[in-house]
Design a protein around this nucleic acid. Structure first.
Length: 800
DNA sequence: GTAGATTGTCATCAG
DNA sequence: CGCTGATGACAATCT
């Protein structure tokens, strides 16, 4: 798309037309033949090439200056301009696009998931989505273990194993524990701390039957849960829920494949890395266009998750063909913001997670990366990603798979999966974060619950997740609505901004109000008014007058009617704006108003010929027109003051009158012996002329203000949507933390034993948290205040 | 013929 | 005090 846009942006069509006029046959399709049908851009939407402003802007820019529209030099001009654009875009293209692609992949999966109706698995997939998946493709394969069960299952197993290993041994030696999962380890640490605290308080561990408990938990919990989880997932599969389909998100990146084929996992990861490399390689070039270019190889798709890719393709049509880059950047920012949020969450919940996750690799060969990344893919956090994905997906979805697939084929030796740029700084934290949250929130609770008594946590999880999913979907929808509200104009405006280097203002203007050339002028006026063609009206006055006046001065004041030459110069500039250029652009046709302000060709030309040295009186207009036929033309298009000046036989041009500095103006007046009437007229002309320019400037400023306000409104809308996203994600994370807390509570409580080794009945006792971070087990009826007074109850350390 | 847009002009204020 | 710029209001013109 972008590639085409560039061509069109550069006025390819116009250029083609020009060439055709010259006699050179140009086959536009050859340029476009690669992927897109000819003139697809036209169908998809108007490009800047169609806009009057751009074309004229080009002309006014340094490059385009002096190039006549019909000049063959335009070819070179456009080429150079295109190259220049590419160079200028080098710094932009990069990250956002890649990011977007990755997210798109996830999104597809998400959509699949949503359709499938699974809450948790879909969520997990989503969660894994995006950056993490791309970053560490290896994780998933390791976790899969070739069981063929979805990632979630594997994770559960892993979590269980870690738990089991830790539980028996972990009592005495927390350090020995190498929990594969950050969360698991964290939880275990907490439990262990509690036990140790009890010991410190004088309660022997034997009281709690810790070892027994652990063994039981190891033996009983892991398996049942594994089975249970496995059953759940199998059921999901049966139900038509394709976990991999959910994962397919990863699959596009290359991670999802491992599920089916453990061996493929590595390859996919490698391919992913290569893809990332390619992206990095491509980015430096700054060629956005290159993404779509590579031919898609279906292999990856087929292996990993046909569903995802296939679905992704269908989704693509939904995307507005012309997605503004601004939106992409915005989405990217949103994604980053979310990632930060998640990272924060992780840090808060499990500060240890990072280190543990790294250490965990020992558990399984690939588990290291897998642990980190696999986790993210699973459960809860996904929702956040989902919303993001949806936002970004549409545009890039198609392109992304195409890019990666070819690489996947070629590469099998890719080095360690390196984090994409996205993850660069915070990646480790993020990964750990996801992992921890997922494990604790989803996996641990089930284990514990199953072992002890609780079904609560497990049943609870699905619902909230489904709800979350729905919420995320709703969010996205609402966001889409917002985007729609902002209107297509925004997208076009953004495109134009990107396309038009010279001045964003012009582009915006054109987009906003194609019918008003002045507006376009105004936008850019403040910054680079001189560059813009549109400036012709407003500034043209100023510039044109000044130059004209100078010219006129050179020619002397002999009486060549002053206003004429300025008018001619205007004409020259105006000719570029000639409405004829706008053929085929209905909206632009209405733009040109032939007011007296801009002298028409005929008059200007005539004036340029210096027809009137001393023209007879000129009545104000046609109404008053009493002029003779030859003068009629002049009068027609000359301003009132010009006619008045001619009528009064003012010996110098109105331009001089208006634009000369006061001193020179006074000198000029002094040189000529003028009557009172002439002096008065000259002063009026000067006053009116200056006021005219002032009015034009004022209007330009007004328009600028309006445009800026509009832009501000759009920005605020984006911020609003972003904040809403963040809010939703905060809410989700809070829920997750609550769930995690609940699960930990249950776990701790169920493992507590009184002096006789009997468990505390939950109906009679509850854990109370004190301000200092300690946890007390209290009878239900006892208040916290009483607790402080009665520390006889057992105290246990809890995480602080 | 009308509505809307554009532009010019006047009056006024402020620097 | 005069000059100039800015701006609201109105009118003229054009589409």
């Amino acid at each position: 798309m972008l590639y085409l846009k560039k061509y069109f942006t550069e006025g390819l069509i116009q250029f083609t037309i020009l060439l055709s006029l010259i006699g050179v046959r140009v086959d536009v399709d050859t340029y476009l033949s690669n992927q897109l049908p000819p003139l697809r851009e036209i169908i998809l939407g108007p490009s800047s090439a169609y806009t009057q402003t751009q074309f004229h802007n080009l002309r006014n820019t340094l490059d385009g200056n002096g190039i006549h529209p019909k000049s063959v030099d335009l070819d070179q001009f456009f080429t150079t301009r295109r190259l220049l654009n590419q160079v200028r875009q080098l710094d932009r293209i990069f990250v956002p696009s890649t990011e977007l692609n990755t997210w798109l992949v996830h999104r597809d999966s998400e959509t699949v998931v949503s359709t499938s109706s699974q809450s948790s698995p879909s969520i997990t997939l989503d969660n894994g989505g995006g950056l993490e998946d791309a970053s560490n493709p290896d994780a998933t394969p390791a976790m899969r273990g070739g069981s063929g069960t979805p990632e979630s299952t594997y994770n559960l197993n892993e979590a269980d194993s870690s738990l089991g290993a830790v539980a028996p041994e972990g009592n005495q030696e927390p350090s020995s524990r190498d929990g594969n999962d950050d969360l698991t380890k964290e939880d275990i640490d907490l439990i262990d701390i509690l036990w140790r605290q009890d010991i410190d308080l004088g309660a022997g561990r034997e009281v709690f039957n810790y070892s027994n408990r652990q063994k039981e938990s190891e033996e009983e919990k892991p398996h049942p849960q594994e089975n249970k989880d496995g059953n759940e997932e199998q059921e999901r599969w049966r139900n038509g829920v394709n976990l991999q389909g959910a994962q397919p998100v990863d699959g596009e990146t290359g991670e999802s494949i491992p599920e089916q084929l453990p061996g493929l996992g590595s390859q996919t990861s490698l391919s992913l890395q290569e893809c990332l490399r390619l992206l990095e390689a491509t980015f430096p070039f700054g060629e956005e266009s290159e993404f779509p270019a590579p031919v898609v190889t279906p292999e990856i798709v087929s292996n990993e998750g046909v569903a995802s890719t296939s679905q992704s393709l269908p989704l693509a049509p939904q995307l507005p063909p012309a997605e503004p880059q601004l939106d992409l950047e915005q989405q990217w920012q949103d994604i980053m913001a979310i990632m930060e949020l998640q990272a924060m969450e992780v840090n808060i919940t499990s500060p240890h997670s990072n280190s543990s996750s790294d250490i965990d690799s020992s558990g399984t060969t690939e588990s290291n990366t897998g642990g980190n990344f696999g986790l993210p893919t699973h459960p809860t956090p996904v929702n956040q990603d989902v919303s993001l994905h949806q936002a970004s997906l549409p545009s890039c979805s198609q392109d992304f798979p195409q890019i990666f697939n070819p690489q996947l084929d070629s590469t099998s030796t890719a080095p360690r999966p390196t984090m994409p740029r996205l993850a660069s700084s915070n990646s480790s934290n993020i990964n750990s974060t996801f992992g921890t949250t997922n494990l604790t929130g989803i996996f641990l609770p089930p284990h514990i619950n199953s072992s002890s008594t609780n079904v609560t946590s497990t049943p609870i999880l699905p619902d909230p997740f489904s709800n979350l999913l729905e919420e995320s979907m709703l969010d996205e929808i609402s966001l889409l609505d917002l985007a729609m509200e902002e209107g297509f104009s925004q997208a076009q405006a953004s495109q134009l901004e990107d396309e038009l280097d010279s001045d964003s203002g012009l582009s915006l203007d054109s987009s906003h109000s194609p019918a008003s050339p002045s507006s376009s002028e105004t936008s850019c006026s403040s910054a680079a008014s001189s560059s813009s063609t549109s400036a012709t009206f407003s500034e043209e006055g100023a510039v044109g007058y000044s130059t004209d006046s100078e010219v006129a001065a050179a020619e002397t004041e002999e009486g060549a009617v002053g206003g004429y030459q300025p008018g001619y110069s205007k004409l020259c500039r105006m000719s570029y704006q000639d409405p004829s250029h706008n053929h085929g652009l209905p909206q632009l046709d209405s733009i040109s108003h032939n007011h007296t302000y801009n002298l028409p060709l005929s008059s200007a030309f005539a004036e340029h010929l210096e027809l009137p040295v001393a023209v007879g009186k000129k009545t104000v207009r046609d109404k008053h027109n009493k002029l003779q036929p030859p003068l009629d033309l002049l009068d027609k298009h000359s301003s009132r003051d010009e006619r008045r000046a001619r009528a009064m036989k003012i010996p110098f041009s109105n331009e001089k009158i208006i634009n000369l500095p006061v001193e020179e103006f006074n000198e000029l007046l002094a040189k000529h012996h003028l009557s009172e009437g002439q002096l008065a007229l000259i002063r009026d002309i000067r006053r009116r002329g200056k006021n005219k320019m002032a009015a034009q400037n004022c209007r330009k400023r007004k328009l600028d203000t309006i445009i800026n306000l509009e832009q501000g409104v759009q920005d605020l809308r984006r911020d609003k949507s972003r904040l809403l996203k963040e809010k939703m994600e905060f809410i989700r994370s809070i829920r997750q933390m609550k769930q995690k807390m609940q699960s930990l509570y249950q776990e701790v409580f169920t493992q507590l034993r009184d002096e006789q080794g009997r468990p505390y009945p939950p109906s009679e006792y509850s854990l109370q948290y004190s301000a200092d971070g300690s946890v007390l087990i209290m009878p239900r009826g006892v208040t916290t205040a009483e607790q402080n007074r009665k520390p006889e109850k057992k105290q246990k350390d809890k995480k602080k």
